[in-house]
Design a protein around this nucleic acid. Sequence first.
DNA 1: GGCAAGGGTCGTCATGCATC
DNA 2: GATGCATGACGACCCTTGCC
Length: 318
Amino acid sequence: MDSSVSSQLDSSLNDSLTDGEENQSETSPSPAAAAQASLAEESSGVTVVQLPGQTVQIQGVIQAPQASVIQSPQVQTVQIATVAELEDDESVTDTQKRRELLSRRPSYWKILNELSSNSPAVPKIEEEKTEDEMPVSNSPTVPTSIYQTSSGQYIAITQGRAIQLSSPGVPGLQGVQNLPVTSSPTPQPGAAVLQCAAQPGDSPQQLFIQGGQVLIQAATGDIPAYQLRSPNSGLAQSIVMAASPGSMQNPSSQHAEEITRKREVRLMKNREAARECRRKKKEYVKCLENRVAVLENQNKTLIEELKALKDIYCHKAE
DNA sequence: GGCAAGGGTCGTCATGCATC
DNA sequence: GATGCATGACGACCCTTGCC
């Protein structure tokens, strides 16, 4: 469909839904309606039917026969206005309520324009991604999990699954020892094994540390705990703090965790909002489809009424 | 059966708008 | 101005359908 036509359809539909009575004067006669020269409309919404020797005023808009109300935007405009007229039987308060409801209607009517618009998509401008949107970095200087042993030693697992060991009292990165994680499934001689599990119920993941120690997850229920053990003895050399790893992180890591948490919350809310929005959209489209069906029926009924009236007056004139 | 086209659904990002 | 919400836009994934 032509975009100009669709936009006209939009405006017609929107205006008609809100101020149907005022839009009838905007109606352009369809070819079929033009053939019936006896039909004329006044701006007041009263249709004047010119009959031989007589002029009859009929409330509401009477359309020439149309196969479907969605054939042309003009027709749709008229018919929606017709409904507004027909519903004048209701009380004034009902009309006001209806108008309020329509005025609060979501902007889903724009969908009609979007569906029929064939304008080319505007090229998207590449923007710089923010820091938290950058791809996962393998840099060992960005730890994702930091653990502290009872001796004060820090173990940091970076996003690239590299392992950093740092000694207490050494500021900054000077005391950090980067240990690349091998992919060997078995502990190398003299290497340590790092086991960790994301969830307490998960099977632990083993990582090998070249330091003669093993970090294993202790079975302490909901709170994950970790132990450093020698791969040979299996005895715990030092107990890692039995609290959530996040609670033991340094301030910068806590800040990163906070940012991540906020992002997760935002994504979750937006996910839910998108679901709700799509549900409303479907609901609105169904509502529009039902409205089209109702208006088609009303249009058909009015056409039959007009024919009957014409017959009556023609017989009287004879 | 394999494959491409089309449609539906979902998550995510960007953006406009309302509220504080 | 900061914040939250609603929604358009986009890409990814899956399913269905028609064709070969």
